[in-house]
């Protein structure tokens, strides 16, 4: 799995934020887990509208995108402390073969996206029994 460098939401790193379509975009922090049946991706995407989340799997590349609109009028707000910025979340993962893309499932709750990527039958571990004489 290949992922891009993590771009921090913290203010000091704002210069490294992408400005695509005039919207700030951040890389979400993710956990990637594996069980015998599936890969599980947990992505921190706070403030995202659940119905704006887009998940694409095409030619081995999984892309997640969530839209987070500004929560204050930034120009008019009198900030005393600004430690993070608000913007969309976007991240891509290169996944080799072994995923049953028809069965990919996603849930979003408490600002965390949970993405289940079931393994294709042939990629599941198989127990090989050795026959004795």
């Amino acid at each position: 799995m290949v992922t891009q460098m993590v771009r921090s939401k913290r203010e000091g790193d704002l210069a490294r934020v992408e400005h695509a379509r005039d919207r700030r975009t951040y890389l979400p922090n993710v956990d990637i887990l594996e069980t015998p049946e599936e890969f599980l991706i947990l992505a921190d995407m706070p403030g995202v509208k659940p119905d704006s989340i887009e998940i694409e799997y095409e030619q081995g590349v999984l892309t997640i995108h969530g839209q987070a609109d500004p929560r204050q009028d930034e120009a008019a707000t009198n900030y005393l402390l600004r430690e993070y910025g608000v913007g969309d979340f976007h991240r891509s993962f290169t996944i080799g073969q072994g995923i049953d893309d028809a069965k990919i499932e996603a849930h979003y709750s408490d600002g965390v996206m949970e993405l289940h990527l079931p393994k294709a039958e042939k990629a599941k571990p198989r127990r090989i029994t050795v026959k004795g004489d």
Binding site: K9, R10, D44, P46, Q72, T77, Y79, L80, G111
Partner: peptide, 19 residues
């Protein structure tokens, strides 16, 4: 990480704590 802002009557704090 916390953002804090104010108006005449109140202070507002916001933090992202997913999960």
């Amino acid at each position: 990480a916390v953002n804090i802002w104010e108006d005449g009557d109140a202070l507002y704090a916001e933090a992202e704590i997913p999960g």
